[in-house]
Design a binder for these strands. Structure first.
Lengths: 337, 337
DNA sequence: ATAGGTTGTCGAAGCGCTTCGACACTTTCT
DNA sequence: AGAAAGTGTCGAAGCGCTTCGACAACCTAT
């Protein structure tokens, strides 16, 4: 293993000079710099992470806490994780992967041990146990998702309220009167993950303004659950012509069942989804959808943290404006027969 | 920030004693141990990761290199990542998330800097650029996947050769004569990711022994690609009654198209998938499938590394035997009309 | 009772790096 | 020409921990 001292000796300078070449925190003459860089290359030197962390009290690591569940939201999670890792590297940081399993203890462990310089938390619940800890530390953090009380916190999320409103507006403009919302699995609501409720609230209040009727049904993914849910919807509201789907794993079952029942999309019923673009374009009908900007959120989270670690930036809540892309799954409401 | 020295002072012992309480590397009297533990709790002490890494030259971190692509295999990747993180924590390790983007440089960086004690690599290609580096370091590593030359390496993977054979055997037993294989996207074959080819080889050679005919077609995911692929298959081999699908994102399109063409599953055609159980059970027809043991591979990888870091264990290639679960998508071949 | 072994604790060195103050030297200004 | 202000480099201290050897204090066995 090559050390700083060895590089210094090889280049004929002192250790501190090599350190300053590496960090750029003091000016170094061109000649010296080149000699040092040459030595670094020749010896294949890599600074030791532990020593660096100890001396500088900076680990250059960002912790990312992902939910343990793999039953929901997987592609979005993955996309965020990849975006975080990629962006972090761009700024010289590495990413530590934590699972939600440890809960608040993970936060304590990471902040206490200096393992990471900052944290990104996903799958934030409205009254998340981890929040007091984050408020009580001076380590920067970003939440992907929105808790009930955001004071002293930085959050990014899609504006799900506006998303719900946007979906219902689109359907209203096409003349649909009766809207059914296929929600997330019941468990999601019970856990009080905010986004599902915020979507619903935004959707409902806009629907009220526009005079539409809304029926909301939580739904597990998969065909069996969907069969039940759909039956109950048409039972209760036979005139339903517009669907808003928030659960990725309910999308394909819904389309298949509608087809099977002889209801054409978009001629008889329209479907708007809230899902990543990839899901929307790969479905059996190209879906009109509001995209979940996973990459954007991941990138933003990292960039905010880096700014804060550099002494710039401050707490803020960023809600990303939803964008609805019209594809082939929505059309004018059928004439009332 | 609380330090070891402060804990020592608070407990009225020396720093080294506290260290030995923590590590258990020397015996400590019950009384002292309790006093120290009490102080640790009272002061809320967390050992500093950097200092520990520097002094012990152990970071207690395992690096996990995931592919950058999010277009294939996502649920499997995620499941492996979660299993790795969870298992690692059980053994006192944390997980560093690296993307494939950096390629061999990431390996150099991590081994050179002592950032991690060991590595797990996913998405291994047959002649992977990272392999020489792994062979040239004494840092333990595990590949999830199988390169062409495994000397000096530890690998885990599903036995894809046996998987292919198993699928075709199952179909043969049911009387199917003409088998179509819906493969991965062409890009996967071009990159020489071994698993796709190994599946095909295993399948073909067993089919030859059993006297079946096999037609292989790579296929991108999605409905459009599937429509083309399926048309070409029935064009070339109208008598096809058995399908083996290896591409997750081709499963649902295949089922939908077959249904649309009036071919009933499993009455007219049978479908065997190679995919995670979750996909198999959530599909529109519950699929007979060979599961991809993502969790098992992740867990094995970590446990092997931990063993090696503890001075136990040695290089080996572990191929997990495939298990075929019969569900509702396969049945006897229709009588020849 | 004494040699030999345990057991529990301590002190000190050192892991490889960053960073502060000091210092020699050069440039610039008056 | 001499003071003031930069430049580039070095030495040394110290980050918080682990670990080695030393050494009391206590057991056994003879």
């Amino acid at each position: 293993m090559v050390t700083l001292a060895e590089v210094a000796q090889h280049a004929g300078v002192s250790a501190s000079t090599v350190s300053y070449v590496l960090s750029g925190k003091r000016s170094i003459s061109g000649a010296t710099r080149q000699r040092v860089e040459q030595s670094i290359r020749e010896l294949g030197y890599h600074p030791n992470a532990g020593a660096r962390a100890l001396a500088s009290s900076r680990s250059n690591i960002i912790a990312l806490m992902v939910p343990l569940r793999t039953d929901m939201y997987v592609p979005v999670m993955m996309e965020i994780a990849i975006a975080v890792a990629t962006t972090a590297r761009l700024h010289g940081y590495d990413v530590l992967l934590l699972t939600g399993e440890e809960g608040p203890d993970a936060v304590r462990r990471v902040t206490g041990s200096g393992l990471a310089d900052a944290m990104i938390l996903m799958d934030v619940e409205l009254a998340d146990e981890r929040l007091p800890l984050l408020r009580g530390t001076d380590q920067p953090s970003v939440l992907i998702g929105l808790p009930a009380d955001t004071t002293g916190l930085t959050c990014v999320d899609l504006d799900f309220g506006a998303t719900g409103a946007l979906c219902v507006e689109h359907l209203a403009k096409l003349g649909h009167q009766d809207i059914a919302v296929i929600g997330e699995a019941p468990g999601v609501y019970e856990r009080h993950t905010g986004f599902a409720e915020r979507t619903l609230d935004g959707l409902r209040s806009r629907a009220r303004e526009l005079g539409l009727r809304v029926l909301h049904r939580p739904c597990e993914g998969g065909y069996d659950a969907m069969t039940m849910t759909l039956a109950r919807i048409f039972d209760e509201r036979p005139g339903t012509t517009g669907f808003v789907v928030q659960n990725e794993s309910a999308v394909e079952p819904l389309l298949a069942l509608l087809r099977q029942q002889g209801r054409a999309v978009p001629e008889d019923v329209s479907v708007v989804a809230v899902c990543p673009d990839q899901v929307a374009t790969q479905a059996s009908v190209r879906l009109t959808s509001v995209a979940i900007p996973a990459q954007e959120m991941g990138r933003y989270a990292v960039e905010h943290l880096v700014a804060k670690l550099d002494g710039r930036g401050s707490d803020e809540v960023v809600l990303i404006a939803p964008e609805l892309t019209v594809r082939a799954s929505t059309g004018p409401a059928p004439a009332v027969s």
